[in-house]
């Protein structure tokens, strides 16, 4: 126990040292006027980051940009979660439905999410809807895929056990297939979170008037490297927080699968 604690502190110290080292090297380089012409130092970026919470970039302050992007992410991701799990599980469990849906799914699956951007903008306009749809597509594919495999690989003897205990077809789906697929589903959600986050950033980069992706792309248009770096910093932080959030959700959902391991 004590040893583990010591190890943890060692790790934290190492992390602090390496971040400090990175910032130091960066700062030293930024003192060189030639370097600082193209790349601002770390403190300039941090300063700009904090200032942006008060001073708006474009029409919004940072917090608003963050919330705008997050709401786009959430709308698409939640829809993808609900529909993706439903489709994946039914496709994995009912063979007739699988035979019907799987070819259509496989037809669309190889197309990367980012390739949908122009078509979706063409169909849905440049408003919010297009972003929701893109986030949806990004998360949907991996969620369906994983839920499908989850339902497909439910242990035969577990199914037999349930049948011998007298459960009917409907009960089989709800009391066996769904819980047995939870680990696979949450693996799908982990991937889905990341690809949804990537989709919303990409959509904002290509066409938008607000959001963290927009901050980055207008930084490029205005030759403002500081703004680009602030944008990337925010993207990293939110992405990290979302990943941690979904890992927490997994821990709760898969408690029965993880404890003691």
């Amino acid at each position: 126990m004590l040893e583990r604690k010591a190890k943890m502190w060692q790790k934290i110290a190492a992390a602090a040292v390496s971040f400090a080292l990175l910032i130091l090297i960066w700062q030293l380089a930024a003192m060189n006027p030639q370097f600082s012409q193209v790349m601002p130092g770390p403190f300039a970026v941090l300063q700009k980051f904090f200032v942006s919470f008060v001073e708006p970039i474009g029409k919004n302050v940072m917090l608003q940009h963050m919330l705008i992007t997050l709401s786009r992410w959430a709308a698409g991701f939640i829809a993808a979660t609900i529909l993706g799990i439903a489709l994946g599980l039914t496709m994995g469990w009912y063979r007739g439905f699988e035979a019907f849906m799987r070819p259509l799914f496989e037809l669309v699956r190889p197309i990367p999410t980012l390739a949908w951007i122009p078509l979706v903008i063409l169909w849905c306009g440049i408003g919010e809807l297009a972003k929701y749809v893109l986030v949806f597509i990004g998360a949907f594919m991996s969620i369906v895929q994983n839920a499908y495999h989850g339902a497909k690989s439910v242990d035969r003897t577990i199914v037999n056990a349930a049948r011998m205990l007298g459960c009917n077809d409907r009960q089989m789906f709800f009391t066996i297939v769904i819980p047995a697929s939870v680990p696979a589903i949450s693996a799908g959600l982990q991937i889905g979170v990341a690809s949804a986050w990537s989709s919303v950033v990409a959509a904002e980069l290509v066409r938008s008037s607000s959001g963290v992706g927009w901050i980055v792309v207008t930084g490029q248009q205005n030759n403002n490297m500081t703004q680009i770096l602030v944008g990337i910093l925010v993207i990293a932080v939110i992405g990290l927080l979302l990943a941690l959030l979904i890992r927490r959700v997994e821990d709760v959902l898969c408690r029965w699968n993880k404890r003691g391991r």
Partner: peptide, 26 residues
């Protein structure tokens, strides 16, 4: 691992596409 992993963990959630404007500018 102890020294590199934290930085890597921080960079990893950044989608590749988000780097594009930075390198275009450079």
């Amino acid at each position: 691992d102890m020294f590199v992993n934290p930085i890597f963990d921080f960079i990893r959630p950044i989608p590749g596409i988000a780097w594009t404007p930075l390198f275009i500018l450079l």
